[in-house]
Nucleic acid binder design. Structure first.
Lengths: 139, 139
DNA sequence: CGTCTGGCTTACGTAAACGTCATCGTCCCT
DNA sequence: AGGGACGATGACGTTTACGTAAGCCAGACG
């Protein structure tokens, strides 16, 4: 009738550490490290970690933040904005102001990124043209 | 008639290490470190470093690259694409292929950045609405 | 029953990117 | 001649973000 395993810890879709590693292409060490830095909060089944959907969502945001060059500490502060479960109002307010700063960072980064992409494209064309002998080296 | 200083090293617009530091808001240590990693090639007047316009241009690209999360080594490889002075053709070809990879990185980053900015904006609005009591906390 | 297999903790190691002395040289000035 | 200001050269220290190895447990399995 019910799940035949005797333990009742089989709440929907928790993942073992290895499943998480495979799903996100990280090592166990990384997940334990993130937990020690309070970026993830896996529950415990005895000794073993069980990662929830909340942890998956947070990890996704963590890895994305890293690709944008944010430090784990900056990311940690931002994460409080998502999954607001039991946060105090004051915490949310400060998270909001931190988020505004990060948003500013990201918008500036996007503008600069556009510019850099353009420049790199131009420079690549210039060099490519040089190599095909269409133009002589001008510095 | 000419510049009254007796040394002839006063080629147009070289900068001392301090001038560079002030111009780019970095420390002397950073500039020496970049030189040791072959990212900059200041000329020497006796013992002292003199940074050329080439170094300024490279430093600008270095700092930009860092803001995009590239490592100094990745940046170093890219720099060979700019200021192509005496590069061998094979070097330029390999620089071009490296540049294609970096360009891919940057374009992917741009797309992801757009998405992340959107998500963050949404989440901020959601939390802001929560705080003004318009919506109840849904997780 | 022994031994994998998977996971846990503890702890030392490492690479990148500088920071921080300590020491020394050298113009420049009074 | 003495003393700053500026700069150079080691060389060791620091932070971030993990890697890696040692040793211990517990369930699964032939």
């Amino acid at each position: 009738m019910f799940d035949s395993t005797e333990s009742l810890t089989m709440t929907p879709k928790t993942m073992t550490i290895r499943e998480m590693c495979d799903a996100f292409d990280v090592t166990p060490r990384t997940l334990r490290f993130y937990e020690s830095k309070e970026l993830l909060y896996p529950i415990r089944e005895g000794q073993r970690r069980l990662f929830t959907r909340r942890d998956s969502a947070r990890l996704k945001l963590i890895l994305r933040g890293k690709r944008f060059g944010f430090s784990l500490e900056e990311i940690r502060q931002l994460l409080d904005l998502y999954y607001v479960g039991d946060s105090q109002e004051t915490q949310l307010v400060s998270a909001l102001s931190i988020a505004r700063e990060r948003l500013g960072d990201m918008e500036r980064q996007r503008a600069e990124l556009d510019e850099a992409i353009d420049e790199l494209r131009n420079q690549m064309n210039l060099v490519a043209d040089m190599l095909t002998g269409r133009i002589s080296a001008a510095q």
